[in-house]
Amino acid sequence: KKTSWTEEEDRIIYQAHKRLGNRWAEIAKLLPGRTDNAIKNHWNSTMRRKVEQEGYLQESSK
């Protein structure tokens, strides 16, 4: 079943993607209940745009 993505999950994906790049299977290990494919789709459909537009979460990672 599809549940919506939480801010916490987005944060984990964002940090992991910065470190690992497009290694979705590795990132998926950090998110129980999410598949690598689901994460990749979420990144491509939602997060990548956010990151590019806003420099997503930069201000809170100090």
Rank of each mutant, 00 (worst) to 15 (best):
A25Q: 14
R49G: 12
K1H: 07
I39G: 00
G21Y: 02
K29W: 02
I12A: 07
I12H: 02
E54M: 10
W5R: 00
E7N: 03
K62W: 04
R49M: 10
E59I: 08
K62M: 10
Y56A: 14
A25C: 08
W43I: 04
L31F: 03
E26P: 00
R48Y: 03
T3K: 10
Y56M: 13
T6N: 06
K50V: 07
R11Q: 12
E26F: 02
R48G: 10
E26T: 02
A28D: 01
K29Q: 10
A38S: 12
I27P: 01
W24I: 00
I13V: 07
K1I: 06
G33A: 10
K40P: 01
I27E: 02
N44K: 15
I39P: 00
E9Y: 00
R34D: 02
K2T: 15
I13K: 01
P32R: 06
L57F: 08
L57M: 11
K40Q: 15
S61L: 12
Y56Q: 13
H17D: 02
G33E: 14
I39E: 02
E8L: 08
E8F: 09
T35Q: 08
A25S: 10
N41Q: 10
K2Y: 15
N44R: 12
P32A: 04
K1E: 09
W43E: 02
E54R: 10
W24D: 01
T3H: 05
N44I: 14
S4C: 15
E8P: 03
D10A: 06
I27T: 02
T6H: 03
M47K: 14
H17R: 06
I39V: 12
Y14C: 11
P32W: 01
S45D: 15
R11N: 14
T3Y: 10
Q53V: 14
T35V: 04
E52F: 08
T6G: 05
P32G: 03
N41T: 15
M47A: 04
K1P: 04
K2I: 07
M47E: 06
Q53M: 07
I12K: 14
E59N: 15
Y14I: 11
T3D: 15
I13C: 04
S4D: 10
K29A: 13
Q58N: 13
N37E: 14
W43C: 01
S60E: 14
E54H: 07
Q58K: 13
K40C: 08
W5M: 06
D10V: 05
L31E: 02
N41V: 12
K40V: 08
K50L: 13
E8H: 04
E7A: 10
G55L: 05
Q58L: 11
I27M: 08
A38F: 03
R11G: 06
S61W: 13
M47H: 08
A25P: 14
E9W: 00
N44C: 12
N37A: 13
T35D: 15
Y14N: 05
L31A: 02
N44H: 09
E8K: 15
E26G: 02
W43M: 05
A38P: 01
I12Y: 02
E52S: 08
I13T: 03
R49L: 11
N41G: 11
N44Q: 15
Q58Y: 06
K29P: 04
S4F: 13
R11V: 07
T35R: 06
G33K: 12
E8R: 13
T35K: 07
M47C: 05
K50T: 06
E52Y: 08
I27F: 03
K1A: 15
K2G: 12
R34K: 13
W5H: 00
S45Q: 15
L30M: 08
Y14D: 12
E59S: 10
L30S: 06
K1L: 07
H42I: 00
E26V: 02
Q58C: 08
D10F: 01
E26K: 06
W5K: 02
